[in-house]
Computed example of a mutant assay.
Amino acid sequence: MIRTLVVASLLLAGCSPADTPDPAPRSTAPSDRSAASACSRVALSIEKNNPPVEDVSTAMLAVESTDPGVREAGKKLGPAAKEAGDLWVADDPAVDKGPANQRVADARQGLLTACTDLFGAYPWPFVRGVSPTPR
């Protein structure tokens, strides 16, 4: 009823409904802030090739997500990041860090895939400071 009155008053005023201003744009912030933060951080980690110690907090954010895919990817990233981070911090030249780093890379990619499943194609509008193509 109210909508009919609005359209009728616009028509009487010489305006068509197409001339009416668009409503305010929707916010680009997603409702699952934990997933958005984890996704932003993993994209930055991949883009900037950050050390694995930074992925531990990314994994904790992902585990808090309401999305099951992001949550499961975070559960895989956490242990891989801790192991690789411990090796990175110890900086023992006698230890082969390659396998641990590969597990982190695989877990990062898994989280990025879960994020793409949740938010669509990368880049997402809520990520700042990242180039369009993560490596």
Rank of each mutant, 00 (worst) to 15 (best):
A43I: 02
A107R: 02
A114S: 04
T4V: 15
K97L: 02
S34V: 08
D67Q: 02
S65E: 04
R128A: 10
S57K: 13
L111M: 04
V104G: 00
A38W: 08
P21R: 04
S40Y: 05
L11E: 14
A29Q: 14
D22E: 15
A13S: 09
T28W: 05
S131P: 12
E64S: 13
E64W: 10
G78I: 12
A80S: 01
E54F: 11
S27Q: 06
S45G: 06
S34I: 07
A8E: 13
R103H: 07
C39G: 08
V127K: 02
P23R: 10
D106H: 10
R135Y: 09
K76W: 07
L118W: 07
G120D: 00
V6D: 11
A84N: 00
P134S: 03
E72H: 10
A105Y: 08
D22N: 14
L11W: 15
L10M: 10
A90W: 06
C15F: 15
P134D: 01
P134W: 03
T133V: 08
G14Y: 03
Y122E: 00
A8K: 09
W124M: 01
A114P: 06
D32H: 01
A38F: 10
G85V: 08
V56D: 11
T20A: 15
P51K: 11
N49W: 12
P123L: 00
P99Y: 02
S57A: 12
P25N: 00
T116V: 01
A8H: 09
D96E: 09
N101S: 08
R128H: 12
C39E: 07
C115D: 06
K97R: 05
A18E: 14
D32F: 03
F119C: 02
L77V: 04
E64D: 13
D91K: 05
N49S: 13
C15H: 14
D117N: 12
T28D: 05
A36F: 00
R26V: 13
P79W: 03
P30R: 06
A107I: 07
N49H: 13
S34R: 02
G69E: 01
A100S: 07
G69W: 00
M60E: 15
V95K: 10
T113F: 12
L118E: 12
L111A: 02
L87F: 00
I46C: 08
L87M: 06
M1W: 14
S34N: 11
A43F: 01
L44G: 15
I46P: 05
A29H: 14
P52K: 01
D106Q: 10
L10Q: 07
T66W: 09
R41Q: 11
A8P: 15
K48A: 11
L87G: 09
D55E: 06
G69H: 02
P132S: 05
D86L: 07
P132W: 03
A84I: 06
V6G: 11
S31N: 15
P21S: 05
A80W: 03
V70I: 01
P132F: 03
S131W: 12
D22V: 14
A8S: 13
A100H: 00
R103A: 00
A73Y: 02
S37K: 14
R33W: 13
V53F: 09
D32C: 02
W88P: 04
L111V: 04
A121L: 07
L12M: 09
Y122Q: 05
L5R: 14
A105F: 07
R103W: 00
A8M: 07
S37M: 15
A29R: 14
C115K: 00
A29T: 15
P134T: 04
L10E: 11
P93Q: 09
D86G: 08
E54Q: 10
D67A: 00
